[in-house]
Design a protein around this nucleic acid. Structure first.
Lengths: 205, 205
DNA sequence: CACCGATGTATCGAGCCGATACATCAGCTA
DNA sequence: TAGCTGATGTATCGGCTCGATACATCGGTG
């Protein structure tokens, strides 16, 4: 999962650990809070051992004439880049869309974020799998609310309702995206700044 | 976190592990997918060691005249109940609302689910802390969308927009709940079944 | 009467988080 | 100019959690 995200990012350009973390946080921040270093560095070493990424040398900044810093224990910035095997592995993970892809928010989010590298069939498979999954959860919540409403206190009830609305919203969003996939257009980019008012997607009419 | 949820559930009535898992999944399912047994049983033992819960005896079902099952390795259902220390600890955790409460979906969700056991001051503190937190995330997303929109591909962009809308929605929801806390009413219970249409909360007018 | 799905307890390996430590470097202020 | 602060950067450790798996009971249903 994290391996997948790292490979995807390094696919675009070489990076240090710190930069990787930032990119993950902003690119996937929606579905995945923030990656910790306790996850990041072990994963990088794992990937390196598996020959999927490799250390590139310290780039650019040091001009040819400059003396190396000489400082004791100089711990240089390590730039990682993806290898050929890494690219293969990434494509393989990208096109394989099992249930673990739909089940977790993170799994789906990270796949979606790299959709630009997939073919449409895979995209649709993942989107529809995800929709089915969220619909199931939605039905479960509706049942709870319909059957056990009087046994729950007001706060628990409000929590369920909020969750239900979130499911309904995600299903609508997925359907928008699926429709735009089918019609061949990539999702639309709005030019109006986002506001507290609901966004009127031009995909809907 | 999981400890907190278990204490809260056992506060209501004694239960087996299996039942605890089900309750957590349905009560907090919105913010927290499903607890695994690999988390549950170790946590139960931890709580038991700390004297916060204790094993109640196997209840009722076995009538006095019945011979015990005799089966080899009969592994009985274990009913757990909360102790006095456990109740104290729970109240302590409930009223303490640190940043870790607002930061994670799970942390906030589990607290909200047990709001019925808190005083209004604590509820408001948590709700406002959460709102501030989500607003921060929202602003971060708005900035990304405003500044770096052209550097992102269509899918990443769509993901960010979806995340932004989710933040906006949660802030609105939090404000509804906060308003209803301030006005002294508990959150309203709708009688109309939930549908795909947005719910018109009576709290808004 | 055999099978199946729900109920129920339990463990193991591996991944991930939160806290922490350490080091460099730019810019700001006293 | 000297020191402070905050961003950049690498790294580890303990502990919580997940996913998979194993095993056992029990109420149906074909």
């Amino acid at each position: 999962m994290l391996e997948f995200a790292i490979l995807g990012l390094l696919h675009e350009s070489p990076m240090h650990g710190y930069e990787i973390r930032k990119q993950i946080t902003t690119k996937l921040g929606t579905f995945r809070a923030a990656i910790s270093y306790g996850s990041l560095y072990p994963t990088l070493r794992r990937l390196q051992t598996a020959r999927l990424i490799s250390e590139g040398d310290e780039p650019a900044t040091a001009a040819p004439g400059d003396e190396p810093p000489l400082l004791t224990g100089r711990r240089g910035r390590v730039v990682y880049k993806i290898t050929a095997e890494g690219k293969e592995r990434f494509q393989e993970l990208l096109n394989r869309a099992g249930p673990e892809t739909y089940d977790s928010e993170a799994g789906f989010g990270v796949h979606f974020a790299f959709f630009a590298r997939t073919d449409r069939a895979t995209r649709l498979r993942i989107l529809e799998g995800r929709r089915r999954r969220v619909e199931e959860r939605r039905e479960g919540l509706r049942e709870v609310l319909a059957r056990a409403a009087e046994r729950l206190d007001a706060y628990t009830l409000e929590l369920q309702r909020h969750g239900l609305e979130a499911c309904e919203r995600e299903v609508r969003w997925l359907e928008e995206v699926i429709a735009s996939e089918r019609s061949g257009q990539i999702p639309h980019i709005t030019d109006q700044p986002s506001s507290d008012q609901p966004r009127r997607s031009p995909l809907q009419e």
